[in-house]
Design a protein around this nucleic acid. Structure first.
Lengths: 340, 340
DNA sequence: GCTATTTATGTTACCAGTAACAATTATCGG
DNA sequence: CCGATAATTGTTACTGGTAACATAAATAGC
């Protein structure tokens, strides 16, 4: 393995000082075009790339963005990661990820990324101790929350308008004639769950429909919650006509329970989800849902983050709210109604 | 933002030289237990962590593993990434990923990771120019292939026994009484696809069943290939009794086409997949498939890689073959037969 | 034509660790 | 008790970039 070249080697070969080489490589304007050309030709001839470790060290910039997610194997986050990656590469940054699952406490996961020297962080719907986030904010560490906001704290974030997403779904269900609509949603300590529930409430209120406690189930954003919640609904005296699942995972569980009980969708009960994860698109699932546009979320989050990093000022003034996108499929009985 | 402490600051406070601090932090044996304790107490009191950039620079080790995948949002790779992450964290390494999709050419994606100074690479079923891989091998750059082998080259790899996986599925189908079995598989320039096809062939041969060209479709590992292939099978004079889909994505397309044609699964045609991605588990899909244990694959791959990195000798002698795991669900008609 | 200013290049120091070697102190065998 | 060896600690140099300042050459203004 031959020794790696340094800018000084390149400088010697080009007959200039190493600083000139450094300037050329950093697109510094104060180099004459002739020397620039000469240096570049040597650089290209030897396929030289500056040592990234040395660069990171002396500039104190790693060009790495840390992504903290609850679980990278969740397709929602995986899609988000793709968006982040694409944008990051545009600016010559890399993504290092850490799932909360892999370490006992979220704190540990965060430490892992900080210890690695990332230039900035994206928290994707992370349920992290607020005090830790506060500390980062106080140090004005570049930080963007994605799919979560932190009420009472100024912090850049990119979210989907969850309240509106819920309202769009409710409006759609109303439009199809449903009145008795139940909801199963995830934990309320995440702003996402809370806002979807809020949208549900406000929609009913506006429509003048009484809110029934029996029609509301709160649990986790998982399949089991959907399954258990639905079993409860099925046994009610007045069974709901439609079930609003807080996300697509919950909707999976809802479908499981309905199938098991021999109820057809949407014939007996309509179902809608949230997130538009790609199994929702499958012919046999065919779930009407709302897309949070996670790919864009990731890309926008990274864009904001990189700007914070490069301007070395983080004012935490960026609050992007994406418009949710209604994806109409058949689990809501859209085609059924249309046939009338 | 108060200035970051350095080992020299810690050294001053503890009344030792900075080298002693460095030794303590690196678990070097030649420090007396008293000084070690004294230094550690200062380190803890100030919550000191050594500057990762400086460390990477002077030791020329980034403690970062590069993961090159075709698409991180594909659940197969996402699951793999989880396994890698878990294992990497054990050894205090981080994972940096790069999808081939995000950059025009795979070459570019690889460059991105190399430019970032990763200590080693995991290639996950990457379709990369062999010459580039060869060059890495020649430089004895730590490298592990996952879910792909490189015939004719010594290179560490972790794969699933794809041939055997296919044979297990075939045997299962034979056991259920099926004889006319068709296959739809992905591109044959990936060892995975080739080996599954081989398993299909050899199973038929052993069973004494003639191989019909009409029953073999090759395309990509995607839904469309499954859909189109199935349409062809449906129109054959002698329709197959079972379809072996080269992976779960293809199986999705198969189901699409069958559902559309009004054929029931497994009543009219049985279907099996490959990979056990999590939508295969869904009640409405219920796909009999084979698990490649991607989580373990990732973990084992990283384990091998880190050992290569730390021993500074990469002999490329590690060839791990995981046993595939048959996951029996209902798309193969298992329950139907059992009722007899 | 000579100083003032701009432009181009070079010099030196510095970042915060690690590696190699030097120096000091402690332990041990005869 | 003394030289030899081991154990512990310290000194210095080095990694390969970037930043700040210095210098030299070129151009402009008068």
């Amino acid at each position: 393995m031959k020794k790696k070249l340094t800018i000084r080697d390149i400088a010697n070969m080009a007959g200039v000082s190493h600083m000139t080489v450094s300037r050329v490589l950093n697109d510094d304007s104060r180099v004459s075009s002739e020397t620039r050309a000469r240096v570049l030709s040597v650089v290209r001839a030897h396929n030289f790339t500056p040592n990234p470790k040395a660069r990171a060290f002396s500039s104190n910039k790693s060009r790495i963005i840390g992504l903290l997610v609850s679980d990278i194997s969740n397709p929602f986050y995986a899609e988000l990661a793709r968006g982040m990656e694409e944008k990051a590469h545009e600016y010559d940054y890399n993504i290092m990820f850490c799932s909360e699952l892999s370490v006992d406490k979220e704190q540990e996961a965060l430490n892992f990324l900080l210890k690695a020297g990332v230039d900035g962080l994206v928290f994707a719907s992370v349920r992290l101790n607020d005090s830790r986030i506060e500390r980062l904010i106080k140090e004005s560490f570049p930080l963007v929350l994605v799919n979560r906001e932190l009420p009472g704290h100024a912090c850049d974030h990119v979210v989907c308008n969850n309240r509106k997403g819920a309202r769009i779904l409710m409006k759609h269900l109303f439009g199809l004639g449903y009145q008795r609509i139940a909801i199963i949603t995830g934990s309320s300590d995440l702003s996402t769950g809370l806002q979807r529930l809020e949208g549900y409430h406000s929609s009913l209120r506006e429509k003048g429909i009484a809110i029934k406690a029996d029609y509301i189930v709160q649990g986790a954003f998982d399949r089991e919650t959907g399954y258990n919640g639905t079993r409860r609904f099925i046994n009610l005296d007045e069974r709901p006509q439609a079930i609003f699942a807080g996300n697509d995972y919950i909707a999976m569980g809802v479908l499981d329970a309905l199938d098991e009980a021999g109820l057809t969708v949407p014939g007996d009960i309509a179902v809608v989800g949230f997130d538009n994860t790609h199994f929702a698109a499958h012919r046999r699932i065919n779930l009407t849902t709302v897309s949070q546009r996670q790919y864009e979320m990731g890309a926008i989050g990274v864009d904001i983050l990189i700007h914070s990093i490069e301007q070395a000022k983080t004012d935490y003034q960026h609050h992007v709210v994406l418009e949710p996108l209604l994806i109409i499929r058949e689990s809501c009985g859209h085609r059924l109604q249309a046939a009338h």
